[in-house]
Simulated assay, not measured.
Amino acid sequence: MLELYQAEGCPHCAKVRDKLSELGVSYVSHTPRLPGGEGGDVVNRQAYDELLALGDADQIPFLVDHDRGVRLYESDAIVAYLDGQYDGSREARTTVEVHKPTENGLRGTVAGVAGRLLQVVR
């Protein structure tokens, strides 16, 4: 199951929603707060608390792929991940490499179909 923490009116979130629609992927959308670089007003306290608990940052868009154990920030990273995992026309798939936990949490990298490295927060 995919969950997207996002806000209407946020162009970065729209980019991710557009990609999900283009790929025909089902997802659950949460709107924890209004858009804004420093964080907009909280409009859904439960979704906001989940966002912070799952990702440790007040940043949107934030995608959680529960089936693959992946959590991503940044629209470009999310779009590349979705292309690699959910675009059936691609031969190569995205691989996820998870490293040992650090004091800042579990970190890893995602290598996309174009070979681009992306930060993953798990």
Rank of each mutant, 00 (worst) to 15 (best):
V42C: 12
L72Q: 05
P35H: 07
G55I: 00
A53F: 04
R68V: 01
D49V: 01
Y81N: 10
G37Q: 05
P32M: 04
F62V: 13
D67A: 12
S75T: 14
G69R: 12
Y81H: 02
D76T: 10
G39Y: 14
Y48S: 03
D83E: 15
N44W: 13
S75L: 12
L63E: 12
N44T: 09
V70Y: 06
E74W: 02
V70F: 04
D65S: 02
E38F: 15
R68H: 10
R45T: 06
D67Q: 15
G39R: 11
D83I: 13
D49N: 14
V64W: 03
V64Q: 09
D41Y: 10
G69N: 09
H66P: 03
V64H: 15
D83M: 05
G36Y: 05
E50C: 07
Q59R: 08
G40I: 06
G55A: 00
V79P: 13
G39F: 15
G37K: 08
A57Q: 03
L51G: 05
G36D: 00
V42I: 00
L34E: 11
A47T: 13
E38V: 10
A80H: 09
I78T: 10
R71V: 04
Y73W: 15
E38K: 15
S75D: 09
A57H: 00
E38D: 11
D49R: 13
Y73N: 04
L51R: 03
G55D: 01
L52V: 00
H66L: 01
L51M: 04
D56A: 01
